[in-house]
Design a protein around this nucleic acid. Structure first.
Ligand SMILES: [Mn+2]
Ligand SMILES: [Mn+2]
Ligand SMILES: [Zn+2]
Ligand SMILES: [Zn+2]
Lengths: 138, 138
DNA sequence: ACACTACTTTAGAATCATTATAAATTAGAA
DNA sequence: TTCTAATTTATAATGATTCTAAAGTAGTGT
């Protein structure tokens, strides 16, 4: 439980003061086994479920953007009216469940190696992202 | 030049009255050889370059959404703060130039066949979209 | 422990893309 | 031409995100 030390160190080592708000958000985001995909709204609701010690919306935005800048989070665009963040910062692909709007990670072995044959002169490939939209099979 | 008839028919056949605003937008969007990727803001600026006969922003939104609903346009999410529409409504992949924010179509032969090995019980695959981010190669 | 300062949190205001409203205009049918 | 429903439009409303500036806090040095 009191492995807060890990997060306090993580924050300190990247020049962010370990405030109770940031530690609380760290625990929520990074103290889990599986990837967490969330929106700011999701996060806000979870954080402020317990009445005591609310975290203001401005702080949630600030913190998430700091974490993104530090490389602890990735932002994912799959839906024009929903912005997702992802605790899995490696290059990876996703299922998007169109019925639930849920993102699911694909492991690299889940997707055959992708070869792009076309090249644009003067440009190099930065990343390749695959989005597999899925839906209820009736 | 006066192949407006094509667009008038296209609109009529889908239950949309061929107003001068819609015809003007049709000509701008569909009277071209190559795929057109645009934002509402792009479109608005092009449409209202010529002072005479401005099209209101509300009409641009209405028209684009009607066209999307009728299947004449596809909406593409690649960037949380920019919503693109695409005159190419087939399933296809994209380059995204991170320096210019420009989308470029990939033909199906430009991308090796993609195999997704993982399946989610009760779900079927609806579509597979590949986004290849590119940038200046220094 | 105390004081100092820069960093952080916060409530509320500002911004801006998109959507809604409701009045004026227009297309198509009679 | 006349009538009606569809459409356009200016404008207001919405809502997510960002900004602001005041209050609170963490770390440093004394
Ligand atoms: Mn969600
Ligand atoms: Mn553009
Ligand atoms: Zn992920
Ligand atoms: Zn395209």
């Amino acid at each position: 439980m009191e492995n807060n030390c890990i997060f306090i160190e993580k924050l300190r080592s990247s020049g962010l003061r370990p405030t109770k708000q940031r530690i609380k958000i760290c625990k929520l985001l990074f103290d889990r086994k599986k990837t967490f995909h969330f929106t700011i709204n999701d996060l806000s609701k979870i954080l402020n479920k317990e009445i005591r010690q609310k975290v203001s919306l401005a702080t949630i935005y600030n913190t998430i953007h700091s974490f993104k800048k530090k490389g602890y989070l990735k932002e994912i665009s799959v839906n024009k009216d929903k912005s997702y963040f992802d605790t899995n910062t490696s290059n990876h692909h996703h299922f998007l469940d169109m019925n639930t709007n849920e993102l699911i990670d694909l492991k690299s072995e889940d997707v055959h190696n992708i070869k792009i044959k076309k090249r644009i002169p003067g440009k190099k490939i930065n990343s390749i992202e695959v989005l597999v939209k899925i839906e209820n099979s009736n």
